[in-house]
Amino acid sequence: MALMTRNPRHQTPRPNRTDATEDGTGRSVATVTELHRSFGTTHVLRGLDLEIRGGEFVALLGRSGSGKSTLLRSLAGLDPASPRELTVHGAVSVAFQEPRLLPWRTVEDNVALALANGPLRRIRREHARRSLDEVGLTEKRDAWPLSLSGGQAQRVSLARALVSKPNLLLLDEPFSALDALTRIEMHRLVVALWKRHRPGVLLVTHDVDEALALADRVLVLDQGQVAAQWSLAVPRGRRNGDPQISAIRTHVLEALGVDAGTRNPRTERPTESGAA
């Protein structure tokens, strides 16, 4: 497999963009219409529709193989899509499950790299420092990424994603590899950053409780389509134990094919026999 080719498919899989004219709150930042995606004979996405608005925090749940990652990759421009199927308005950033920081660049250079095509070097540096400050890692700016803990690396990854002021922030299970305490800290940080910058957020996750704690809207993907979705009206921070949220939780688990009585969303479907 060639790493870099001149093949136009590799050159232009970036989503088709229109320039954002204003700060975009409430306006659509991503529109997905009838998106089909298949690998060989496997149809992963079958006519998926989705709209994400500026400043909206959307969580996407689904079993493995439901097409979550495929959708995210299309939105990130890593897989090609036609403008009819998918449009992203303005800049898009991604924070991956593994932070994917370049190990041979310092923390600050990693963040500044997101602005490589933008302003002057000095200004890039300034922006990168401010962004690192926001995630509380100013003192690590000259460190090598391999010297960071998992949580720190993920925070740098968030700083890198936000430094370019994206209209759409894609989070691909960024907290799944972290320990429980770090995850709680990261949840708080993500909400704080989102409130400050107000990008549209699409969080792909396996964790139903994470989705219910963070999002305005929760989607369940099944067989390549949005099978169900819920808007969460209860403010963040007051959701724990809220009856409305509990009810939605039960529905979400049902939509994911989990017996509503069990707490673990990864439990097998009732229809599938086998050991627990």
Partner: peptide, 23 residues
């Protein structure tokens, strides 16, 4: 994965060579 990350950062072919592939 680094090349994909570079892609999402909108790095040009030259920048990918310089910042990802060469190092």
């Amino acid at each position: 994965k680094f090349l994909e990350a570079a892609h999402t950062l909108n790095l040009t072919r030259r920048q990918r060579l310089r910042h990802v592939i060469a190092p």
